[in-house]
């Protein structure tokens, strides 16, 4: 499997995300996993519970539960580094998008509804492969705690669907 570049290309004029990818990450019942790292090179990880993408696809915001993501939020504030994987369980279709300018933001109007729509879509997706509604709700439960957005400019994106193309930059993988 080809490696992805060690350092992502510097600011790209156009988003590496096309409309199809945007629909996939913002509306499909995908599993969302978010990683960062601290200045000490310790990685951190949490689960995402929804996503918003700007109409021009220049900016992506991933929603996470603050209580469940303390280390990661500290890392993002310190290093602004972010990696987000979107994976569709039934097809294994998987994308990884990276950013170097991530910031922690409050939710915008409409984001609560996005989280709710994500919950419905993810529950349906996992339901189709045999997981019950209550199980999925536990998996992405926010415990009523604060939800924040991690907003970043996608600077690199990779196809990570298992198989011969895994790891290729998205533009080349198409």
């Amino acid at each position: 499997m080809p490696d992805q570049p060690l350092s992502a290309p510097s600011a790209v004029p156009e988003s590496p995300i096309d409309a199809d990818h945007a629909a996939f990450i913002a509306t499909a019942g995908v599993s969302i996993s978010v990683g960062s790292s601290g200045a000490d090179l310790l990685p951190s990880i949490t689960r995402g519970i929804g996503c918003r993408i700007a109409p021009d696809r220049s900016r992506i915001s991933v929603f996470v539960v603050a209580d469940q993501s303390r280390e990661l939020l500290d890392d993002v504030r310190a290093t602004r580094r972010l990696a987000v994987v979107f994976s569709e369980p039934h097809s294994h279709r998987t994308l990884q998008i990276k950013g170097r300018d991530a910031v922690v933001e409050s939710l915008e109007p409409g984001d609560r509804e996005r989280v709710e729509r994500y919950r419905t879509a993810f529950t349906a997706e996992l339901g189709a492969i045999g997981f019950g509604t209550l199980f999925t709700h536990a998996l992405i439960d926010s415990g009523g705690g604060d939800v924040v957005a991690l907003a970043f400019t996608p600077c690199a994106a990779f196809d990570q669907t298992p198989g011969p193309r895994a790891g290729q930059p998205l533009a080349n993988a198409k």
């Binding site: 350092s7 978010v34 790292s37 990880i45 580094r81 994987v85 998996l139 990570q160």
Partner: peptide, 21 residues
């Protein structure tokens, strides 16, 4: 039953997330 998710980070600090089979 639910795949594990793992974060690692390169020497330059770039994080990476992977699903584990």
């Amino acid at each position: 039953a639910v795949p594990g998710i793992m974060a690692t980070c390169a020497a330059d600090g770039t994080p990476n997330v992977a699903y584990l089979s």
